[in-house]
């Protein structure tokens, strides 16, 4: 087996506050292979964006990586600073954010933003960089790309802007792309365009993708494997079809049950009681136990176990319960 592009081992992110030490990411481990799309799902506050930001070194103080390792190919990238971090961002890892307007510089034409990134990371001349920027814009499907090289971000629609951001993320040919809710701000028809684009580009180049989203439908159609996060911890990790159709962790099962589905029609949704706990007030034992239908005494006392099979749960769903 080829070594994974990204390998995260026991990652812990901590935020010291006046009242308590918060752990938005708690002992999270996963790998992403070349050409693979890993979906990361969870509700707000689950720590999925925080994990992505930790990988690319975008944590805002006082949040910091407290322990664990992040390996990009054969290079350890947690703890990188200054010049080393600059090299990894862009060349090693590309990032696509949720809001395309705030991730582009409003004062620079888009052609310049892309060629600037290429010049920074690749040993090419200025004219070569401009040619590559044009090629990148054509590849993501900007109509009349040559004429629009000099356009500013505000002159594009939301979908077109997200295409520019994807071109920007991929222009330095990174090994890994982190896409943090890339289509949440977009309409359904444009979302389908962007997802198809992301899938095609990554398949053609063999780029590994970490796709952070809360939309189970997007995950089902896009990801190869899926990681479900709850209150900073990995609840379940496995091939997308298995996780979505036969969830092993009760939280995943509840999440799937509460998504309105075509086949269920008007039946009542299977709701999970309560809401995600705040980081400052995590329950003892397994963080999910107050909302879990399968809670036993052990869950109230002992923290959730490390991954066993697909799920980090003392009492994963049995075959009968899934059916």
């Amino acid at each position: 087996m080829t070594p994974p592009i990204l390998s995260v081992r026991d990652l812990v992110v901590e935020i010291p506050t006046r009242n308590a030490l918060l752990r938005p990411v708690d002992r999270v481990s996963f790998d992403i292979a070349a050409g693979e799309i890993l979906g990361v799902v969870g509700e707000s506050g689950a720590g999925k964006s925080m994990t992505g930001n930790a990988v690319i070194g975008l944590l805002d103080r006082p949040a910091h990586i407290a322990s664990g390792e992040i390996w990009l190919k054969d290079k350890r990238i947690d703890g990188l600073k200054g010049e080393g971090l600059r090299k990894v961002r862009g060349k090693g890892i590309g990032m696509v954010f949720q809001d395309p307007l705030t991730s582009l510089n409003p004062l620079l034409p888009i052609g310049e933003q892309i060629s600037e990134t290429i010049l920074e990371h690749l040993p090419v001349s200025k004219s070569e960089a401009e040619a590559r920027a044009l090629a990148a814009l054509e590849e993501v499907g900007i109509p009349a790309a040559k004429a629009r090289m000099g356009s500013y971000p505000h002159e594009f629609s939301g979908g077109m802007r997200q295409r520019v951001v994807i071109a920007l993320a991929l222009c330095a040919e990174p090994d890994l792309v982190i896409a943090d809710e890339p289509t949440t701000a977009l309409d359904v028809s444009v979302q389908a365009q962007i997802i198809a684009l992301l899938k095609r580009l990554c398949r053609d180049r063999g780029t590994a993708v970490m796709l952070v989203t809360h939309d189970m439908g997007v995950i089902a159609e896009t990801a190869d494997r899926v990681a479900v996060m709850y209150a900073g911890r990995l609840a379940e990790l496995g091939p997308v079809r298995d996780v979505l159709t036969a969830a092993s962790h009760p939280y995943t099962a509840g999440l799937m049950g509460s998504t309105p589905l075509a086949s269920k029609g008007l039946a009542r949704l299977n709701q999970i009681p309560g809401s995600m706990p705040r980081l400052g007030a995590l329950p003892t034992g397994c963080a999910f136990h107050p909302r879990c239908p399968k809670t036993q005494e052990k869950c109230r006392v002992d923290p959730a176990p490390p991954m066993q099979g697909r799920a980090a749960c003392w009492y994963p769903m049995t075959v009968e319960e899934i059916a």
Partner: peptide, 24 residues
């Protein structure tokens, strides 16, 4: 029809969507 085709589906594993043309 286009809206329904473009909406992500929970059972659409590996579904290749023919992306709709154009924008609003």
């Amino acid at each position: 029809q286009m809206l329904f085709a473009a909406a992500p589906k929970l059972d659409g594993f590996g579904r290749e969507v023919e992306p709709p043309k154009g924008e609003i």
